[in-house]
Design a protein around this nucleic acid. Structure first.
Length: 433
RNA sequence: GGAGAGGUGGCCGAGUGGUUGAAGGCGCUGCUCUCGAAAAGCAGUAUGCCCUUACGGGUAUCGAGGGUUCGAAUCCCUCCUUCUCCGCCA
């Protein structure tokens, strides 16, 4: 949610920025409801005051009939106004929640994903002196990916992953954990990118794979129609569509002392997505499945360091992909593409030989205080002031997809796949998958 | 899954219908005392929202939501959750 006071003071700006993100919001209507709400609220509170005065007047003694009658009169008036307030409240919050976050100044304005800006291209597209195969082809030949039997057991868009690539997945996990918990490595990334953040290590987390409705809604990421699976029965519970969805709400309704920030987490979770309406090349192999494993970074920080943490997470993503030896490019997403709760968003796209183009593997999302306001995650400063925290999340690796792209970029003419240098120690020193 | 007992402020803990936003203790902050510290004494110490330039005032919150009542932390209902025992299991 956005600060209502900010909307009152900057109605036109908010309307304009919402439009740039591709959302139409009736700010005028929101302001009207806000005024009505406050008017009614003061009436209700005045009545409640009368009620409190009356009931405090004769503590310990029996009230007179007259007192009871006037109490009853207040109660009747109050209940009518309270119902009215409830209705306006609902309208007000519904409108308020429709207002997306305001992009930061550096976000390019654009009206489609074509207007995302390529900030840098690192490494050249992999060259082969043979016709490269798709990861799906290689995976099937090697017996690494079995979609047919998974379809029989689980349905479409599930797989059995088998053999070496399973070990590869665990090698990636081990490597990422070792990088993100090593303050010396973090320091080198910070210095190389001229960032003003602490080198505090990330804490590894295995978060719940299931999220309750209220907690999920507060993240702003619950998408019932296209993404999120609801558990059967009466339980108000959903399957996690990303580790982020049970990480970002970890401190829901809490106030964090400023000197404990930033709090950085590296979460690992199996993620589930409906993927309604997707089609085409991405359906091949393991690029887009209903179930995949993901390493996700999440950072809670003070407002002062939120944007710098965002840059830090992007720098870490670049470090990780670079160390893996994959050709990639860095994309700053335009206003249209950054997403509803985002103030800024960047993607990493890795070169995919079989598709002859770069495909998204990572995204970094900076929410300013937008998500924290809905979650009521706050920071208590040393001077006692309380403000909303800033939240950042960023992919460390979406494992299915990154494995697919490693396979494609590291394939050899004899049909094998080399193991990236940084992962060899986690694969028993082997050279070939 | 079954049975029982709980959920009160940063923490412990009192409180079963009327100055209880909440005793008392701990912790924390400030002041007094001291060369300094400790001890002691005094004062302060939750969060949201509304009004207010400010000082301040109002209102709500005792796990969450609803109900009863002139009046609810206290009574009733539903849900969530913690602990203990049993069952089952990795």
């Amino acid at each position: 949610m956005i600060d209502i006071q900010f909307i009152r003071d900057n109605a036109e700006l908010v309307a304009e920025k919402s439009k740039q993100k591709g959302y139409s919001v009736d700010i005028a209507q929101l302001i009207t409801k806000d005024n009505q709400r406050r008017e009614l609220l003061s009436q209700v509170e005045a009545l409640r005051q009368q009620r409190n005065v009356l009931s405090n007047a004769n503590k310990g003694e029996k009230p007179t009939a007259a007192q009871i009658n006037s109490g009853k009169a207040i109660k009747e008036k109050l209940s009518l106004l309270e119902i009215e307030l409830e209705t306006i409240d609902a309208d007000y919050y519904k409108l308020l929640r429709q207002v997306p976050n305001i992009p930061t100044a550096s976000v390019p304005v654009g009206s489609s994903e074509d207007e995302n800006v390529v900030i840098g291209t690192i490494g050249a597209p992999t060259k082969f002196d043979f016709e490269p195969k798709s990861h799906a082809e290689i995976g099937e030949t090697k017996g690494w990916i079995d979609r047919d039997r998974a379809a029989k057991i689980a349905g479409s868009r599930f797989v059995y992953l088998k053999g070496s690539i399973v070990q590869l997945q665990f090698a990636i996990i081990q490597w990422v954990m070792s990088v993100l918990t090593d303050e010396e490595i973090l320091k080198t990334i910070i210095e190389a990118n001229n960032l003003k953040v602490s080198a505090k290590a990330f804490e590894p987390v295995l978060p719940p794979a299931i999220v309750k409705t209220d907690a999920y809604k507060a993240t702003g990421r619950l998408n019932e129609d296209e993404v999120t699976y609801k558990l059967a029965g009466d339980d108000e519970q959903w399957l996690n569509a990303s580790a982020e969805h049970s990480l970002c709400n970890m401190y829901m309704d809490e106030i964090l002392p400023a000197d404990t920030l930033p709090r950085r987490y590296i979460g690992y979770a199996t993620s589930f997505r409906r993927e309604a309406g997707t089609y085409g090349k991405d359906m091949e192999g393991i690029i887009r499945l209903h179930q995949f494993d993901k390493l996700e970074m999440e950072v809670f920080s003070s407002p002062e360091t939120g944007e710098e943490e965002h840059k830090f997470l992007i720098a870490i993503q670049a470090y990780l992909v670079g160390k893996l030896g994959l050709p990639y490019r860095l994309l700053q997403k335009c206003t249209f593409d950054i997403g509803f709760p985002n103030a800024s968003g960047w993607d990493v796209e890795v070169w995919v030989p079989s598709q002859n183009k770069y495909r998204e593997t990572h995204s970094a999302d900076f929410m300013t205080d937008y998500q924290a306001r809905a979650l009521k995650t706050r920071v208590k400063n040393d001077d006692g002031n309380i403000v909303f925290a800033h939240t950042n999340d960023a992919t460390a690796f979406a494992l299915g997809r990154i494995i697919a792209f490693i396979i494609e970029n590291y394939q050899t003419s004899d049909g094998n796949v080399r193991i990236p240098e940084v992962l060899k120690t986690y694969m028993g020193g082997r050279e070939i998958l």
